[in-house]
């Protein structure tokens, strides 16, 4: 293959990464934006989503379409329930103190990781894709499922955006994000909004994992990279900014795809992480965000 098609392939792979990444990062960004806390266990919700997708696929007994649809329903529900439970039992009692929350979510990270290792095992297990169509391009064939992942993520993002900007729930969430105390004074049940947002953030990560797992295999340590990349995306995009998160996910996903194809993946990660740390140091509001009130 010559350079052009190679680049196209890299871009397509980058788009798949970007699609899944923007869903995961959106969850982290929502939680940070509304609740002002950093959820270190976010990557584990992603991992849990993937592991549950494998479980759902094995429940369906070999029919990949039913397994996939089942996973798409039960995996976010279970992950959301776990997130809600930990929010009610732990985070609320810490009064969302940012530092105590980080320590507590590190604890949650270990608990979920160990639970996955004990109950699911150390192996990476594949989940069959719901369909196997190869889209034949002039230079190479490309998996139709991957294109489906891109489309599905894009529609989920649009749906989230519509919920946030067009519905009453979204209005309540934005009001809480804008000014928690005034929102409370206007009768918004801030406490319940917090619980809901935390669960919603985890569910977005779980959906992203269900989508990616036919490509990537489910493994109990798979939460690490999405966590780091989501952090990177959320920071570059500006903490709490939806539009910034999207642009940053595209930027990071594409550049990750391109750099990893032409250079070493470790080097790509190194450069990205360093760049982000420096962005946070010199431009704390992110590249696309505005200064916090």
């Amino acid at each position: 293959m010559s350079f052009g098609p190679h680049l196209l392939l890299a871009c397509l792979e980058g788009l798949v990464t970007a699609a899944v990444l923007s869903l995961t990062a959106l969850g982290l960004s929502l939680v940070f934006g509304v609740m002002r806390i950093v959820n270190v266990a976010h990557g584990e919700f992603f991992m849990l989503g993937a592991v549950l997708a494998w479980w759902a696929a094995s429940l369906a007994g070999g029919d990949p379409v039913i397994g996939f649809l089942l996973a798409l329903v039960i995996s976010p529900l279970i992950v959301g329930a776990i997130a809600l439970l930990s929010e009610r039992l732990v985070l609320r009692r810490l009064h969302y103190n940012p530092e105590a929350t980080i320590v507590a979510t590190i604890g949650l990270l270990y608990i979920l990781q160990q639970a996955a290792l004990s109950l699911y095992g150390p192996e990476a297990r594949p989940v069959p894709a719901p369909f196997n169509v190869r889209i034949v391009l002039p230079w190479f064939g490309y998996s139709g499922y991957k294109l489906f992942v891109i489309a599905a993520s894009a529609s989920l993002l649009v749906a989230t955006w519509l919920v946030l900007t067009r519905t009453r729930i979204g209005l309540v969430m934005r009001a809480t994000q804008y000014d928690r105390e005034t929102a409370q004074a206007f009768g918004i049940p801030v406490d319940r909004v917090y619980g809901g947002v935390f669960a919603l953030g985890a569910m977005l990560a779980a959906v992203a994992a269900v989508l990616i797992v036919p490509i990537q295999q489910a493994h109990y340590l798979m939460g690490r990279d999405p966590l780091l990349l989501s952090f990177i995306v959320v920071i570059i995009g500006g903490l709490g900014s939806l539009r910034g998160t999207l642009i940053a996910a595209l930027l990071i996903g594409l550049s990750d795809g391109v750099i990893s194809m032409f250079f070493s993946p470790t080097l790509a990660k190194m450069i990205a992480t360093l760049a982000v740390a420096l962005v946070l140091v010199f431009r704390p509001q992110g590249l696309f965000g505005t200064a916090q009130r």
């Binding site: 009692r93 320590v103 507590a104 604890g107 270990y110 608990i111 990781q113 639970a115």
Partner: peptide
Amino acid sequence: LLFVGILLMLLVL
């Protein structure tokens, strides 16, 4: 690791 995680949560709580 489970104990580490539970311990962290209990401590901070």
